[in-house]
Structure formats: C-alpha cells, structure tokens
C-alpha cells in the first residue's frame, strides 16, 4: 500500500476523533460535501453515473503523465457527496497498483461503515468498486 494513501486515511481518522457526537460528525461530512469541487456538468453523463437506489454518484477518472490517476466525483445527496469527497481525497493522484492494494479501512474506523453497506444502495460502494476498476483498466493499458 502506498504510504500516502495510508497517511491520508490516518489523517481522516484523527480528524473524526475530534468529534464528540454524531451531529458534529455529520455536520463535517455535510461541509465536505458542500466544499467538494463540482464535477463538470458535461461529465455528469449516464456513462459516468453509478446508480444507487437511494442516491446517485458520478465519478470521472483521468490519468496524468506521471502514471497517477485523478478523480473528480459528485453526488445528488450531500451526505453521500461528503463521503465521496473523503474517498476521492484518499485515492486522488495515486498509482493504479497502490489503489488496487488499498484496504479502505478509514470508513469503518470513523463509524460510517453503514454507508458502505450494499443495502444502503447510495452509490458509494459502487463508486469505490469503480475506482478500483479504473485502476485495473489503467494498469492493463500501461502494460500493453
């Protein structure tokens, strides 16, 4: 696992340790959701849509010349969007092989594991899977 990915996960865990109750935690997530740079409207296509039953997530991936992947993402629900922002923060600018090896343990550590449950169907679990799919596809492309 890349050390930066792990450092970022630890950073998020420490940030959340400061909150004493659920309200502060969710207020912070909502804030993150509001701050997340919007995905370009042109990119909010069905092709980039990860459709949950509850909320939608759009994910766009691009690769830089240094072989790293960059992500922008959006959601129609602000809480999902805040969680999306955290996931993007962990994976953005990382190498495909590091992304593929990552165990995204911070979500459970900050007590938001329920949002990753497939039964929640908010698009978040699908988004993480999609990030890994992009990483795998990019890795295969590099090898060719």
């Amino acid at each position: 696992m890349s050390s930066t990915i792990e450092i970022r996960q630890q950073e998020i865990i420490s940030e959340f340790e400061m909150f004493s109750d659920w309200m502060q935690k969710y207020e912070y997530i909502i804030e993150l959701g509001k701050e997340l740079p919007l995905i370009a409207t042109a990119l909010k296509t069905d092709e980039l849509l990860i459709k949950g039953c509850q909320s939608k997530v759009w994910l766009h991936a691009s690769d830089a010349s240094d072989g790293c992947l960059h992500f922008t993402a959006d959601s129609d629900a602000i809480i999902t969007k805040g969680l999306v922002a955290l996931v993007v923060r962990v994976f953005d600018g990382e190498k495909p092989e590091d992304i593929l090896q990552t165990d995204l343990h911070f979500v459970k550590a900050i007590g938001l594991h329920e949002h990753l449950s497939p039964t929640r169907s908010n698009g978040l679990a699908g988004m993480i899977q999609q990030i890994k799919n992009y990483a795998l596809a990019y890795q295969l492309k590099q090898k060719q």
């Binding site: 969710y26 509850q54 909320s55 602000i78 809480i79 908010n122």
Partner: peptide, 21 residues
C-alpha cells in the same frame, strides 16, 4: 434537499422512515 440526507439524519435520531421512489 435530497431525501437520502433527511432519512440519514432522522435515522441518527432514532426515527425510521423510508426514502427513495
């Protein structure tokens, strides 16, 4: 406001509702 956001914050306060279509 997205229904999912309302549903999530109600749930945190012990109120069970359904959101979606």
């Amino acid at each position: 406001i997205h229904p999912y956001d309302i549903g999530t914050l109600l749930d945190k306060q012990g109120v069970a509702v359904r959101t979606g279509h």
